[in-house]
Write a protein that binds this DNA or RNA. Structure first.
Length: 280
DNA sequence: TATGTATGGTAAG
DNA sequence: TTACCCTACATAA
């Protein structure tokens, strides 16, 4: 039997949850919106779509949960989802040759000093309005949206018999939460992931919404996931060591009480919980 | 060089 | 539930 080594928090922090996507939307809008863009697919799998976008003016970039929608003048909407492996490489100042795995490169026609590369996405496609409506219709409220309404989220939790750990990862219940935020929000609210949604108190459900929202906002500001309270860690945000940026995610011992962290597979992914801080 | 792992999601059985 | 897709990087061999 192989020794199972636990992932060290911070060592694999490139895979995106909602905050990464909102941050990317903001940054790319700064660099690209209002300009005619060249679009190319060095890797080749999006050659046709890139050709349809080439030369068009980008008008806006919207983030919904973990999904990105690029709106061009006189062209279909570009839908991007990074999935587990996808990432952006943003170049501002010097633009290197694209890597062979670059699915899509967007760059202003006029300026040769900036470009956005998309690598390894789960989705990179042009969609028509009906498909866009279907996509948005299957997403729950996104706490990062300006007009976010918690009511549908609270109601779904309140009537579901599914484990709350499964519900938090379900993008139709709540958009933007991934495995780290799931683990950390449940821990901060003292809720065990295996409890049924409908068994949570109103205060616990409200705590989850509020906590997830705070963590996502902090993630957008910081550009990384830090969920521990700096006061508790005794240092400023930027000085929290990598190994202490989460309470239970990826850890063997709870950062708060030192007790063992249990691992449960929920919604196909490893959930982390401290049975002492999060009783069943 | 090969293997294992990852913060995601979909579609098929 | 399972298989599968997508990529980069660390570690083992």
């Amino acid at each position: 039997m192989a020794l199972v080594k636990s992932p060290r928090p911070g060592r694999h922090c490139r895979v995106p949850e909602g905050h990464t996507i909102h941050r990317a939307a903001r940054r790319q809008a700064e660099l690209l919106v209002g300009r005619a863009l060249t679009a190319s697919s060095p890797q080749g799998r999006f050659a046709e779509g890139a050709a349809a976008l080439d030369g068009r003016v980008l008008e806006r970039v919207d983030a919904h949960g973990k999904h990105l929608l690029y709106r061009f003048r006189d062209a279909p909407v570009l839908h991007v989802h990074l999935g587990l492996f996808g990432r952006f490489r943003v170049h501002d100042g010097e633009v290197p040759e694209p890597r062979p795995t670059t699915r899509l490169r967007l760059a202003p026609v006029a300026a040769g000093d900036r470009a956005v590369d998309l690598i390894g996405p789960t989705a990179c496609e042009l969609i028509e309005p009906p498909a866009e409506r279907r996509l948005l219709a299957r997403l729950g409220p996104d706490p990062l949206a300006r007009d976010a309404d918690p009511a549908p989220f609270l109601a779904r939790l309140g009537r579901s018999r599914a484990p709350v750990g499964t519900l938090l990862m379900d993008q139709s219940v709540l958009a933007g939460v991934g495995n780290v935020f799931r683990a950390e929000a449940l821990h901060l609210c003292g809720v065990h992931p295996l409890r049924e949604g409908r068994d949570l108190s109103e205060a616990e459900r409200a705590c989850l919404w509020e906590t997830v929202g705070r963590m996502l906002e902090e993630g957008v500001r910081r550009g990384r996931i830090v969920t521990v309270d700096p006061a508790e860690a005794g240092v400023s945000w930027s000085r929290i060591p990598r190994a202490r940026r989460t309470y239970v995610y990826g850890r063997d011992e709870c950062l708060r009480c030192g007790g063992p962290v249990e691992r449960i597979t929920l919604a196909g992914r490893t959930a982390y919980a401290c049975p002492a801080c999060q009783p069943r």
